[in-house]
Nucleic acid binder design. Sequence first.
RNA 1: GCCCCGUUCGUCUAGCGGCCUAGGACGCCACCCUCUCAAGGUGGUAGCACGGGUUCAAAUCCCGUACGGGGUACCA
Length: 462
Amino acid sequence: MRFAPAPSGYLHVGSARSALFNWLFAKNSGGVFILRIEDTNAELAAPEYYDAITEPLKWLGLEWDEGPYFQSERRDLYLDAIDMLLQSGKAYFCNCSREQIDQRNKETRFQGGYDGYCRDRNLEETPTASVRFRTPDEGLIQVIDLIRGEVTFDNAELEDFVIRRANGTPVFLVANAVDDADMNITHVIRGEDLLNTTPKVLLLWESLDYGVPPIYAHLPLLVGDDRKKLSKRRHSVALGDFKDEGILPEAMVNYLALLGWGPTDEKEIRPIEEIATLFSLESVNKAPAFFDIKKLNHINSHYIAAMSTEVFADEASRYINKIGWKPPHFDMSTLEALTPFLQQRATRVSDVVPLLDWVFEDDLPQETDEKEINKMVKAMGAELVPDILEEAIGRLQDCQWDAETLSKEIREVGDELNTKSQVPVRIAVTGRRTGLPLFEPMAYLSRELVLRRLQTARSNLR
RNA sequence: GCCCCGUUCGUCUAGCGGCCUAGGACGCCACCCUCUCAAGGUGGUAGCACGGGUUCAAAUCCCGUACGGGGUACCA
């Protein structure tokens, strides 16, 4: 089987899902997974796009067994095939412009695409002539599809499509047929958006006498919240972006496998190798699937929580470095000590920053969310808050400086005033209403810094 | 318009004629735990698009309708 993406900038989650299903099927059936870059269109053949495809695949752990092959390097093969079709009369030259075709169709109210104007004009080859394939006038063509069954198309509905552009380059339909035959492709797994192009490839396949065609599997499309096919223009779907925000590859791949397919035993979160053993194309769904970030997040937080503390601490510090966050009090051993608390709370690796900023920064974070500010004001505004803060300041002046003592002292502040004391202290010290457990991280701050924050909060109350 | 493909809780899915008064997961809500938030636990919310058949029996098979998606390029 092969995964054959067109290089058009970065890899997006839809393509990644196609790659994944190819990979799963290959693993499950012991097949060979071939990577082939469909760059028949010169504009897409820029070499820098290569990494944009392979890097995300490697990140996801979807290694290919063979390739990558570049169609731009195999052009002669396709051109030869086109010459054969020309010689056998199954293709012909055409010099119609799009405008001319549209014009004629408008006049004759013809709605089938190309009207076959040059079919029997026996045009000679010229530098500006394109080549069209002569589709049969009658008969049916059948696509064998493991997901959808046998899909039948009426040949008469198929227009004489272009197989070689006026600039002399072959289109992907030819490259598809030639390569799939040449590479002994047995299974083609791709998005449903390509289903309609399949009969054209099959017709070429027949005309080229390639024998038994591959078996197809057209995956249901991934859609966004508008229920439209995921697209780079409308949705944010770059795999690289998810990586940058701290989505783990294991989580991404696990989630993607759950779109259009599900295990029968109801255990959703499991390693991809295990999924491969359960996977089958026949049990893939037919209806489009909504790419749900919330569920991705949930799966990701599960994988984060399951990581060892060492690995996560490393992951977190790499993230901090990458975004160039250099807080004055940063300390690796403190980060390591707080890691278990972080893992329990972070949905994405990027969440560690708002969780930790008050620990490592000198200044308190500025809360900007209005709702949150209101809630904080409310939490801080209770009658007893000034007393709580003052009592806390007094007690922290010269107590022991460890989490246990801090917890005890603040608790006693509450007991003394017959109220709860943690939230006001938390807001004063962390600048936030919610977050990590208060006292463990607090013990890593200097007494002086904590007192300063408490005092600032106290005076702001006036 | 024409062609192709679809339709199980808001979302992703299990189900492949009787085990279904439809199961799980995400989300949401409540409660428990807890002097924050999470995590965890418990419970709840909500669905077989509609109409005809076939059958002793249909979410499961067939037909139609509605709705949705994809394609309709000298992009892939």
